[in-house]
C-alpha cells in the first residue's frame, strides 16, 4: 500500500472572475523509500497539489478528491487538530526561498527546537542537544554557534540546510521539497541535492521533489510525474522518461533543453502547443 495516495484531486480557487481550477483531477502515489519528482512549468499546479496534501491552502481554495490518504489515514476527513499532529512530524515540507521561509525574529536554533518540543515533547535540554546533532547532520559545521544565528546572518545555502534540519527533525515518513534549489547557485544546488538524497537513503523516507528543472529530475528521481495546466501529462520511471518520453509535452520539454540542441535554434514548447491546436497528438 502506498504511503501517500492521491486519487482524482481537484483544487479550485474562488477568484473575482469566478472559479479557477488550478489542479484538475490528478492522481498519483508515493511509496516508502521512493523519490518522486513532480515536474512542470509555473502555473502547472504542481505546488498547489502538494500544498493541498499538507493542508496549507487558504480558505478560498476548495479541495476535493476521491481519496487522499497518508500512511493509512484519511486526510480529507481529518480534523485540523489531528492534522497538526501529522504535518511537520510525519510529513514535512521545505520551500523555494529558504531565507523567507524561516521566521526572521527568532534564532535558527529556537525554530528547530520548537518543532522537537511540540511534536516529540522533548525537554529544553534534549531539544538543544538534538538540534546540534541535526545541524551537524545537514552539514553545518559550527552548530552551537549557528544555533544562535538569526536567518539573515546565514547564507541562502545555510538557511536551506537549517530548513532541512527542521523538516527532518521528527524523522518524517514523507518529505516534500518544493523547488528546494531554485534560488541557489549550481555548486550549492549540488550540495543540497546530495544532502537530500543522502538523508532520504539513510532514513528510507519518501521524498517528493517539485521542480521545473529537468536536470534536478535527472539527478534525483526514481519516478516522475509531468504536469501541465493542472493535469497530469505523463508518469514514468526516470529512465524511460528521459530515454523514451511518451507524451508530446514531455518530448517538447526535453527538446527545449539547451544541452539537447541539435540545430541552430532550439525547439520550443510553443511548437508543441501549435501542433496541439492543429489537432496533433493530444496528451
Amino acid at each position: 500500500m502506498p504511503l501517500l495516495d492521491i486519487q482524482n484531486l481537484t483544487v479550485t480557487f474562488a477568484t473575482m472572475k469566478g472559479p479557477f481550477t488550478a489542479v484538475d483531477g490528478i492522481s498519483m502515489h508515493v511509496d516508502h523509500d521512493e523519490v518522486l519528482a513532480i515536474v512542470g512549468e509555473s502555473g502547472s499546479g504542481k505546488s498547489v497539489a502538494m500544498l493541498a496534501v499538507m493542508g496549507l491552502l487558504p480558505d478560498t481554495a476548495a479541495v476535493t478528491a476521491d481519496s487522499l490518504t497518508f500512511d493509512g489515514r484519511n486526510l480529507l476527513s481529518m480534523s485540523l487538530k489531528e492534522r497538526r499532529t501529522v504535518i511537520g512530524k510525519d510529513m514535512s515540507m521545505i520551500f523555494q526561498e529558504p531565507v523567507a521561509s524561516l521566521n526572521p525574529c527568532f534564532t535558527v536554533g529556537f525554530q528547530i527546537m520548537e518543532s522537537l518540543r511540540t511534536h516529540l515533547h522533548m525537554s529544553e535540554r534534549e531539544a538543544r542537544n538534538k538540534t546540534v546533532e541535526l545541524l551537524h547532520q545537514v552539514g553545518i559545521t559550527d552548530a552551537p554557534e549557528k544555533m544562535r544565528a538569526f536567518p539573515h546572518q546565514l547564507s541562502g545555502g545555510q538557511c536551506q540546510r537549517a530548513m532541512i534540519a527542521m523538516a527532518i527533525s521528527c524523522k518524517p515518513k514523507l518529505l516534500i521539497a518544493d523547488e528546494p534549489t531554485t534560488a541557489l547557485d549550481v555548486t550549492i544546488q549540488k550540495q543540497i541535492l546530495d544532502l537530500l538524497m543522502q538523508l532520504q537513503a539513510e532514513y528510507g523516507m519518501a521524498l517528493i521533489i517539485i521542480t521545473h528543472d529537468m536536470g534536478v529530475v535527472a539527478e534525483t528521481a526514481d519516478r516522475v510525474v509531468v504536469q501541465y495546466n493542472g493535469r497530469k501529462m505523463e508518469e514514468a520511471d526516470v529512465l524511460s522518461l528521459f530515454a523514451a518520453p511518451q507524451n508530446a509535452y514531455t518530448r517538447a520539454l526535453l527538446s527545449a533543453l539547451p544541452e539537447n540542441a541539435t540545430g541552430d535554434r532550439l525547439p520550443t514548447v510553443a511548437d508543441f502547443r501549435l501542433n496541439d491546436a492543429a489537432g496533433g497528438p493530444t496528451p
Binding site: D33, V186, A201, A218, E219, D222, L239, F242
Partner: peptide, 29 residues
C-alpha cells in the same frame, strides 16, 4: 571543473549509472 561537475546531467547513460549506484546503496543498507 567544479562548476562542470555540479551541473546536472540529463543524458540517459548518466541516469542509468546513478540508479545503479543507488541500488547498490539500498542493498548494502
Amino acid at each position: 571543473k567544479k562548476l562542470f561537475a555540479a551541473t546536472p546531467k540529463t543524458d540517459v547513460e548518466h541516469i542509468r549509472a546513478r540508479l545503479v549506484e543507488r541500488q547498490k546503496w539500498r542493498d548494502s543498507r
